[in-house]
Deep mutational scan, measured.
Amino acid sequence: MLDDRARMEAAKKEKVEQILAEFQLQEEDLKKVMRRMQKEMDRGLRLETHEEASVKMLPTYVRSTPEGSEVGDFLSLDLGGTNFRVMLVKVGEGEEGQWSVKTKHQMYSIPEDAMTGTAEMLFDYISECISDFLDKHQMKHKKLPLGFTFSFPVRHEDIDKGILLNWTKGFKASGAEGNNVVGLLRDAIKRRGDFEMDVVAMVNDTVATMISCYYEDHQCEVGMIVGTGCNACYMEEMQNVELVEGDEGRMCVNTEWGAFGDSGELDEFLLEYDRLVDESSANPGQQLYEKLIGGKYMGELVRLVLLRLVDENLLFHGEASEQLRTRGAFETRFVSQVESDTGDRKQIYNILSTLGLRPSTTDCDIVRRACESVSTRAAHMCSAGLAGVINRMRESRSEDVMRITVGVDGSVYKLHPSFKERFHASVRRLTPSCEITFIESEEGSGRGAALVSAVACKKACMLGQ
């Protein structure tokens, strides 16, 4: 009897593995994704193909990295998701002549009506938060230079001027797309009239992360975010950046690689679950690469896999709870928690219980395998993109072996128990001629924006502006 049951459990697990095998990517698959990513990057950089390229390769006008001589107080704003952060950054000489960066910050959550109302409502709310922060720190009387981390696709015309191309991540505030974001912020500050600010720089969160990590390690020339969304930036040779005049030196390019796949480059790798996630998203047909990796989508992918296993009578005796059938019910943090389970399955059992399920031991094991399959594919897909960037940098610099540091931020990278190990191992397999160091950014977005502002202020002083 026991043997029969054991055989049935083994057969069930084997069927589960057959279904989950769809998520496995072979090294040849990853090399294919990497080569296609490089081709799209090239198209994004070139003037004649930029418009139709899915990977936009947006110039950021960040050319210099901090040298350690900029000092002063800077205000930093960070808008990239449902939370908005205001930070005071003091850049100065530390002990023994070292450079020191001290920060104080406060988080504000953005109400739904500000995210989806008008641009005026959104930026009025942001300036209200700045006003509140300055009151708390008794700094209303000071006109501070301000660095703005704005983590949406922007076409820069200068370091302090950028046109919002399109909202992502659930934002829909009308009247912002096609307009200068810094102008919208300046107008809102003017409307309030109770404080003055000098907006000197606007950067993407990947750029802010790279600059913040450069402060720790001067070989950091790539910034990457794996959180709600997924994106990367890197220092490109100016001669390859056709959208900006000049051939000397390097400029940081914001790849906006989340949109890779929007022209069909990933079609052969998309599964039924991916198509369902895409169809029910706020932007169907867009940001397809990001939807395979980002935390906004990972939990939902797992939920759809679990429903398939229920329908195949391989999980929960073929019956799903009402909660499990509800879109968004299986949160991405559950994926991390399930994979963090120590082996007694308590954590998995508790999560499934909150979803109205009474799982068996085998159910718990199957749910864990589903989570591992989805998150491992995410790590491997992400590795193909980064390997594409790094191999490109090595080739354009004609280096036999390139040493490089990548600064990384984002909740999936930082909080998932195995993502970074799987990701690092896969990147290294795909970049055999590179020695890569990964560092995690601390308060990256805010500190990085302030350091970019410090560079901009120093330049302005040198130019006598």
Rank of each mutant, 00 (worst) to 15 (best):
Leu463Arg: 13
Leu20Phe: 14
Glu112Ala: 10
Thr437Leu: 14
Lys56Ala: 11
Glu14Asp: 12
Glu272Trp: 14
Ser441Met: 04
Ser373Leu: 07
His50Lys: 03
Lys140Leu: 05
Asn204Trp: 00
Leu288Ser: 14
Thr103Pro: 10
Asn83Thr: 03
Glu236Gly: 00
Ser151Pro: 02
Arg422Pro: 05
Ala425Asp: 14
Glu300Ala: 09
Asp311Met: 04
Arg46Lys: 09
Tyr108Asn: 01
Arg191Asp: 04
Asn83Lys: 05
Gly193Gln: 07
Tyr289Ala: 02
Asp132Ala: 08
Leu288His: 09
Tyr214Met: 15
Asn350Cys: 01
Met57Ile: 02
Cys233Glu: 02
Glu248Thr: 14
Met34Phe: 12
Val412Pro: 13
Ser64Arg: 14
Thr82Met: 03
Thr361Arg: 08
Phe74Ala: 11
Val154Ile: 00
Val199Tyr: 00
Arg428His: 10
Val367Asp: 06
Lys90Gln: 15
Val33Arg: 03
Pro59Thr: 01
Leu276Glu: 11
Ala188Ser: 09
Leu79Tyr: 04
Phe269His: 14
His137Asp: 03
Arg333Leu: 14
Asn180Ser: 01
Ala208Val: 02
Phe423Leu: 12
Asp205Asn: 05
Ala449Thr: 02
Leu352Ala: 08
Arg397Leu: 08
Leu270Trp: 07
His105Tyr: 10
Gly227Pro: 01
Gln98Met: 09
Gly299Gln: 06
Glu128Gln: 02
Val16Pro: 08
Phe419Arg: 10
Gly227Lys: 00
Glu395Arg: 11
Gly170Glu: 02
Tyr108Val: 00
Glu196Arg: 15
Gly407Thr: 10
Ala425Tyr: 05
Ser109Asp: 04
Ser441His: 10
Asp262Trp: 12
Leu270Tyr: 08
Thr342Phe: 09
Val199Met: 00
Glu442Asp: 15
Gly92Asn: 05
Ile390Glu: 00
Phe123Met: 00
Ala387Asp: 01
Glu22Asp: 10
Arg85His: 07
Met462Gln: 11
Asn240Glu: 13
Ser411Lys: 04
Ser441Asn: 07
His156Asn: 00
Glu339Arg: 04
Glu120Asp: 07
Asp262Tyr: 12
Gly388Ser: 07
Thr376Pro: 06
Met121Val: 10
Lys102Gln: 14
Ala21Gln: 14
Val406Arg: 00
Arg392Asn: 08
Thr49Gln: 05
Gly44Cys: 10
Pro432Leu: 11
Lys13Trp: 11
Gly246Trp: 12
Val401Asn: 09
Leu184Tyr: 00
Leu288Lys: 11
Asp3Val: 07
Thr431Phe: 06
Met115Tyr: 14
Gln219Lys: 13
Thr149Glu: 06
Ser396Met: 12
Glu216Gly: 09
Val302His: 06
Met41Cys: 09
Arg447Trp: 07
Asp113Ile: 12
Thr49Trp: 09
Thr437Ala: 13
Leu315Pro: 01
Asn350Gln: 08
Asp194Gln: 15
Gly294Ile: 02
Val253Cys: 05
Ala114Pro: 08
Ile110Ser: 06
Ala320Val: 14
Lys414Phe: 05
Gln106Tyr: 08
Glu28Asp: 09
Ile126Leu: 06
Leu309Pro: 01
Ser411Asn: 01
